[in-house]
Amino acid sequence: MDIRIEQFDKIVKMIEGAQAALNKYFFEYRIFTTFEYWLMIFFLIAPLVLLYFKIDKSKLFEICFYGYNIHVLFGYIDLYGRNLGYWNYPFPVLPPITGLSLDASLVPVTFMLVYQWTIKRKKNYYIYSLLTAVIFSFLFKPVLVRMGLFKLYQEINYIHLLICYVIVVFVAKWMMDLFLWIRRKYA
């Protein structure tokens, strides 16, 4: 067998071991019985309920596609940061997807509502999304850190988080603009 594949198989076993350790931590410390766990459940469910009532149904596809862009891009960046040991979530809703509450609900829904507000009122998306990114990076994340819901490691700081948010919201907007342009051109 190729030595590279053998080495790769060893790495996969190490990843399996790390996931098994996280699962053991989750059940051994009964994470699902803690206040922090249920707060993360709240961060997962409440934004989706709010979105259901607040989303502009006349622009449903556009806003949901934008939110999907945010979800996917933020999910990739979050996965990248967790895999490199830059940050993680000690109270995951599901151990294999530790950032689920923020990646799949709170962050995308917040930016979806900002996007909706800016297009409805013809405001500058970049200013308001940047302001929201600053609030997430310098207010919300530090509160999560103080509560023990989010941990930063190595040399990572809140400016790094802001850069991640800015990349995501700008790229998501550019992707949305591209698809809107394609729709106008070919519709």
Rank of each mutant, 00 (worst) to 15 (best):
I11M: 14
P108V: 06
Q7H: 06
V143F: 13
I77Q: 01
L100E: 00
V169C: 03
L139Y: 14
E155M: 13
F27T: 09
L113M: 12
Y68F: 15
N124S: 08
V169L: 09
Y153W: 13
K54P: 01
P47Y: 09
I55G: 06
N23F: 06
I63R: 07
L161P: 00
L106Q: 03
R30I: 04
F138M: 00
V169E: 04
R184T: 12
V134D: 03
L113A: 09
D56Q: 09
L50K: 04
K59R: 11
L73I: 13
I70H: 04
N88S: 12
V166Y: 13
V171S: 10
K122H: 13
G75T: 04
L73H: 06
L180S: 13
Y128M: 02
R4L: 12
I11T: 13
L113E: 11
F61H: 09
E28T: 15
F65V: 12
K54L: 12
V93Q: 03
D9Q: 13
L39M: 13
Y37G: 04
I45R: 06
H160D: 14
L178A: 14
I55H: 01
Y89S: 04
L48C: 07
Y153M: 15
A20S: 07
N83F: 11
N88P: 01
I97F: 13
A46S: 05
L149W: 06
F138L: 02
P95I: 08
M40H: 01
H160V: 11
L51D: 11
I41T: 03
I70W: 07
S137D: 05
I55K: 01
F111M: 00
F150G: 07
L100N: 03
I167K: 04
P96W: 03
I5E: 00
D78I: 02
Y86C: 11
E28N: 07
P92K: 05
G148L: 15
T118D: 00
L73W: 10
Y125T: 00
S137G: 05
L106C: 07
Y66K: 02
P95G: 02
Y86P: 04
N157V: 09
F136L: 15
S129R: 00
Y165M: 09
M147I: 14
C164M: 15
I182P: 14
G85K: 09
L102F: 13
S129I: 03
Q154P: 05
F111A: 00
I167N: 01
D78S: 15
G99T: 05
E155H: 15
D177S: 10
Y158I: 13
L106W: 09
R4Y: 15
L113I: 10
L79E: 14
M14I: 12
L178M: 12
I167L: 15
T118V: 07
C64K: 14
R184Q: 13
E62K: 15
N124P: 04
I63P: 07
P142G: 08
L144D: 03
Y186E: 06
W38D: 01
E155N: 15
K57G: 00
